[in-house]
């Protein structure tokens, strides 16, 4: 019977922890996702804990060595340790993706919220802009923006943020439209609550889960575009370790030194699949709620 009670009626902290454990045991997918994401977060925060080697120290004499006990992922064309580069690259790559998507989510989400809630001309104008961005395949837009503006972190982040803005806009707009018609909004309005307060306190709160799920859905896609731009030489430039940039360097040594391209790619796959799994689990929870 107690299982059916809401969590906060179910007694003390200890029991709640057990509840959480039980919950996780029923969701192996989520456990796997949390392990992967946790590992990558740890790697991004404390790369030094995983390797003593430097990601940028050049050692020409030891170039293009295959994986060994000393160099787990081998060395690259100028003798840098590939494992160290991949580990240190985790922070670079993931923070760029996470940061640009966060910018996208805030700007797109707010614009969508306002457009959906108030409608009329701001909605019309924003919708046109969104259509324009969506008329390009994402990667092509990324290539055009970074190609024209030039390489560098700022341009890369801007490109990724622009590419995904419309998708946050749309989801927030749809959510705001749905919420604006609810009775609680009408009730708040009739009580004299100012419009912006309804928007922030009530509508935003209900749209936020949608934006969160969207963020996790888009993360793996944005990661792939970030890597692709790096691979095309339009993203982060060497010697800064970035997964896509490492792959760009590797393509001239594809057959002589396959380890240079295998391992960074595996980390991209690991990160993307971790977030995909996490997104699916969260989506299930949001859907059930």
């Amino acid at each position: 019977m107690s299982a059916a009670l809401p969590a906060d009626l179910r007694g003390g902290r200890g029991e709640r922890t057990f509840g959480l454990l039980r919950e996780l045991r029923r969701r192996p997918e989520m456990v796997l996702a949390l392990v992967i994401v946790g590992f990558l977060l740890f790697t991004a925060l404390f790369p030094g804990a995983l390797t003593d080697l430097s990601p940028t120290d050049v050692d020409v004499a030891g170039a293009l060595q295959p994986p060994s006990a000393a160099h787990w992922f081998g060395t690259d064309d100028v003798g840098r340790d590939v494992f160290a580069r991949v580990i240190y690259g985790t922070r670079v790559t993931l923070s760029i993706v996470a940061g640009s998507l966060a910018i996208s989510a805030v700007l797109g989400g707010l614009a969508g919220l306002v457009a959906g809630y108030f409608g009329r001309w701001p909605d019309m104008v924003a919708a046109r802009g969104v259509d324009v961005i969506l008329s390009f395949p994402p990667i092509i837009l990324g290539v055009v923006i970074t190609g024209v503006l030039g390489t560098g972190i700022t341009n890369l982040v801007m490109a990724l943020a622009i590419v995904y803005l419309p998708l946050f806009f749309r989801i927030a707009r749809a959510g705001a439209i749905a919420e604006a018609g609810r009775t609680y909004v009408e009730a708040a309005r009739s009580l004299g609550v100012p419009e912006w307060q309804i928007l922030v306190r009530h509508v935003l709160r209900n749209v936020l889960p949608l934006i969160l799920v969207q963020y996790m859905i888009l993360f793996p896609l944005a990661l792939q575009i970030e890597a692709a731009l790096g691979f095309l030489g339009l993203g982060i430039q060497p010697p800064t370790p970035d997964w896509g940039a490492i792959l760009e360097q590797s393509k001239n040594y594809l057959l002589f030194a396959p380890w240079m391209s295998v391992f960074p790619g595996l980390f991209i796959v690991l990160a993307a699949s971790g977030v995909i799994l996490l997104g699916r689990s969260v989506q299930r929870i949001v859907d059930a709620a």
């Binding site: 692709a228 792959l247 991209i268 990160a271 993307a272 699949s273």
Partner: peptide, 8 residues
């Protein structure tokens, strides 16, 4: 498949 970049 969804996680792997196409160029990789």
């Amino acid at each position: 498949g969804l996680a792997a970049p196409v160029f990789w």
